[in-house]
Amino acid sequence: MSDHKIRLTVDGGPVSKTVEARQTLGEFLRDGCGRTGVHLGCEHGVCGACTVIVDGKAVRSCLMLAVQADGTEVTTAQGLAAPDGTLSPVQQAMMDEHALQCGFCTPGVVMTMTALTAGGARPTEAEIKAAMSGHLCRCTGYQGIMRAARKLAGVNA
């Protein structure tokens, strides 16, 4: 087991830690950075619950090693709301549309939608839904997620 020193930015703050080579980014964010909003649902890249944004792209943190995140900028669901508690547009759309129940898949869903709509991008509803096909939700039948996707795409907004 080799240890490696990594430096990265997590939710806007600098992090410098030593990690085992085999540790996934997801485990590192949870155990090493206190980001327990990163949920490990399957640890084999299917369910999408662990999705975070790395250098602007939505990635499954269970399929990426912590050492691979050296030098990157990582955003989790815990880094989206404003300091005064105002929810991000994606979080607010999800809340307004009752797009969650148990909330376990939710941070991953939020991060994928956030990556798609970053910087004022307006993806189509179909594009958001296509991205959502990489997320499993066992509670909602995706009904509110579909409505949130439509809202974020600017239709019926």
């Binding site: 327990t36 949920h39 490990l40 815990q78 989206l80 999800m94 969650l100 909330g103 939710t106």
Partner: peptide, 21 residues
């Protein structure tokens, strides 16, 4: 009424408290 859920704010911001947390 379709009242927004009290649970949602903590869950959407990754601040839920599940067992592994």
């Amino acid at each position: 009424q379709r009242v927004p859920r009290k649970e949602d704010r903590r869950l959407l911001t990754g601040n839920g408290a599940y067992t592994d947390d």
